[in-house]
Simulated scan of single mutants.
Amino acid sequence: MTETVSDFAAAAAEANATAAAEAAAQVLPAVEPLTAGPAQPGSPHVTAAFAGAAVADLEAPVPGRVAILVGQDLVTALANSPLGGLDLHAAIHPALEAVASQLGTRVRGARTVELEALVGELAGPFTTVPLIGIGIDAAVLVTDDALSGAREPVAEPGLDSAGRAASAGERVETTQPFTAPLQEPAARPYVMIPGQRGLEMLHGVDMEVTVELGRTRLTVRDLLALSPGAVLELDRAAGSPADLLVNGRLIARGEVVVVDEDFGLRVTEILDDAAAV
């Protein structure tokens, strides 16, 4: 009986990991559509075939962390973006959130980490699910405590792809072919993607866009003295154009307008790299 319960718990964790990876595959930038391969125990060699990594903590009540590994194509596209170098964790944040949502929570503190530091960041046993496109283009890593603390899997873990029940202790087979084991460090051939195609990977990436009217500086005493009705003088004259910032980087200026009772910005100037510095 104990073995049966243990087998079911392992199958449930595997189902949770696979479902989380499938959710990430839908929103992760990629040249070709991604599909989730079979879940497998994590290995310290898992980073060998990848070029970048981001990790995030999970919010209560689900403990643990999740991470996503990506290939050189996405790392290169982010570095060569016409909007300047973009942070990997910002670009794949929707994928991290998709993983967390599937587990029944949200992420916090997402950050880009060095490949050699990733396994240490996970701080414990984890499960790996490869994301397969042209090859193994990415991978989702979920700590085992996150899988055990996640909500019930959306699919019955004891069913195979044809809907047949698996007996206790029997491994459920998947129809997804697995091209190479992630446990062994192996470099897969990388074909350079033309610049335009690499840029297309970023077309669906969400970016934080901010309109800034101006700034000022206050002492702590002045900040603590703020009250309703206080007026702050900004470092910009009335009628001056507002700044448009993307992920904190100034890219344009424009006039503040009202659109259907909401504020908007009419862009009047696009700044090139030299002007924006």
Rank of each mutant, 00 (worst) to 15 (best):
S6I: 11
D7Q: 14
L115C: 06
G149S: 01
T128L: 04
T2C: 05
P44H: 03
R108C: 03
N247W: 09
A24W: 07
A237I: 06
M207R: 12
L202R: 02
G198D: 04
A15T: 04
D144T: 13
D273M: 13
V231P: 10
F263I: 03
L69H: 07
A15M: 10
G149N: 00
R188L: 14
Q72C: 08
I136R: 09
L118R: 06
A180I: 08
D272N: 15
G149D: 00
E97W: 08
D273P: 08
A25R: 06
G104I: 07
F126I: 01
D273C: 09
R266E: 15
V154G: 13
G163T: 06
L199R: 15
R249C: 05
V277L: 14
A187K: 12
T210K: 12
L28D: 01
R151Q: 15
S43E: 08
A60M: 12
A230Q: 09
P44N: 00
G133R: 01
L34Y: 04
L202D: 05
G239Y: 02
T76D: 13
T179H: 14
M207C: 10
A13N: 14
T18Q: 11
G198W: 06
V246E: 08
R236Q: 13
R65F: 09
Q183S: 14
T76P: 03
H45D: 14
E170L: 00
A91H: 06
V231T: 11
V107M: 05
E173L: 15
L234F: 07
A9K: 13
N247E: 15
D137N: 04
H45W: 08
G149K: 02
L147Y: 05
E208V: 13
V31G: 10
G120S: 13
E269N: 12
G204M: 10
H45L: 09
L199V: 06
L141D: 07
F50H: 11
N247V: 10
P82E: 08
A168T: 07
G133A: 03
L141K: 04
A110E: 15
Q40R: 11
T47D: 02
V31E: 13
V113L: 07
A166F: 03
A230R: 10
G214P: 00
